[in-house]
Design a protein around this nucleic acid. Structure first.
Lengths: 213, 213
DNA sequence: TCGGGCATCAACCGAAGGGTTGATGCCGGG
DNA sequence: CCCGGCATCAACCCTTCGGTTGATGCCCGA
């Protein structure tokens, strides 16, 4: 017999009280887990992750306004000896996923995950290995397999402004570009998405999760 | 002393295991509540609401695909002696709210509601009174106060197709209209929303929750 | 009954957006 | 080292969209 393994210490960050209660209920019944605290804001998550000894932070991406989950993730993982961050969100847009991964998240789960999958992901993350939900992994694979669909950083930026309802002239001013450049980006976007107008580009990109809203 | 009041019998319907667990945890600690069952699909909610003696159904609006929460709500409230349905969702688009109310929902709550508000709403619903989250009530008030912002049925239909990326020509064919009529609707939509282009109309309407996606 | 909102359509015009060609500079990988 | 992708811009043409005016019919409520 080995000595009993120390429990995995967890911090829950989500602005929905019901979700926090649910995660607590699901994870505390699981053996080997200890929920140290749950907080309703990204700021408190950063704060507590620094002060308490925590192994894994379960982090929502969308908090009501202010700091984003991805920013909090970056702030937490930047420190030495930082806990692992497991992003847990409702949405699965490319932008969110990439932002979380770039911010140093160890894993990415969707909130509709069954309890077993959730527990398994936490253990995987605690061990320092990356834990991606099947849906997410699939999306990343798609992105690799079909690079034609992947918009460049600048293209995404332009398309997001289009989705916000800006005209080419407004976009060019906002990004300090000529209208010609904006149009050039749009033409590339159209061909990558297989569409032929700004509105259908927005529709297609929204459907694929390339942009937000 | 009166005899002890019978507990309010609840049925939870949500496709997220974590949310079901959270609602259970929050409501079972509250005195006077009894969670009869929780189900992951709208179909099972309709089924169980008919078979068990339930006072209030907590119903999500978005289930992974298939039957919508609003349809399930309509199916449940259609029967005689039906339980009250309290809609509990993440989103607050006008379309969703109106669909739920038309389907016979007794109340409409957002998932970020604090536990006390949730419990209070359940009691209110059990008593047969309508329970609207402050945000929702505000939105309905706005809708009443500024009828200029409320798009007509036909206008919403046209704008939804615009949001789907269709051109005026495509919309006119889809709806068996002339392009002139489509343009006419769009002009009215623009003035109601205070915008001046199709893309900004889509952005504004999405922000206001007038259309879906 | 009469006005007003809704829905429908026509004709017209100017402007914005869409499509092409062509060109430059930068950077990173084979 | 050179090719290719990315980002930038210009000039051009044509289509679609945006905006106006004006008109018809319907239905509802004052």
């Amino acid at each position: 017999m080995t000595s009993p393994a120390p429990p995995i210490r967890l911090l829950l960050a989500d602005d929905h009280p019901v979700v926090r209660a649910g995660l607590r209920a699901v994870l505390e019944t699981e053996p080997g887990f200890e929920v140290v605290a749950d907080v309703p804001t990204a700021e408190e998550a950063v704060e507590l992750a620094g002060r308490c000894a925590v192994d894994v932070v379960l982090m929502d991406l969308q908090f009501g306004g202010r700091m984003l989950g991805s920013q909090a993730t970056a702030a937490i993982t930047a420190r030495a000896g930082a806990p692992r961050v497991l992003v847990l969100t409702t949405y699965d847009t490319d932008a969110d996923i990439l932002a979380a991964i770039e911010a140093g998240a160890t894993g990415y789960l969707l909130k509709d995950a069954p309890p077993e999958e959730l527990a398994a992901a936490v253990r995987t993350a605690a061990a320092g290995k990356s834990a991606l939900a099947p849906t997410i992994a699939l999306r990343l694979m798609d992105r690799m397999r079909a690079p034609a669909t992947a918009l460049s950083r600048r293209e995404t930026e332009v398309l997001q402004l289009v989705a916000d309802g800006l005209s080419n002239a407004a976009i060019s001013k906002r990004l300090f570009l000529s209208q010609a450049t904006v149009k050039s980006h749009l033409v590339h976007i159209y061909s990558k998405l297989g569409v032929d107008s700004r509105t259908s580009a927005v529709a297609a990109a929204t459907a694929k999760g390339l942009i937000r809203r």
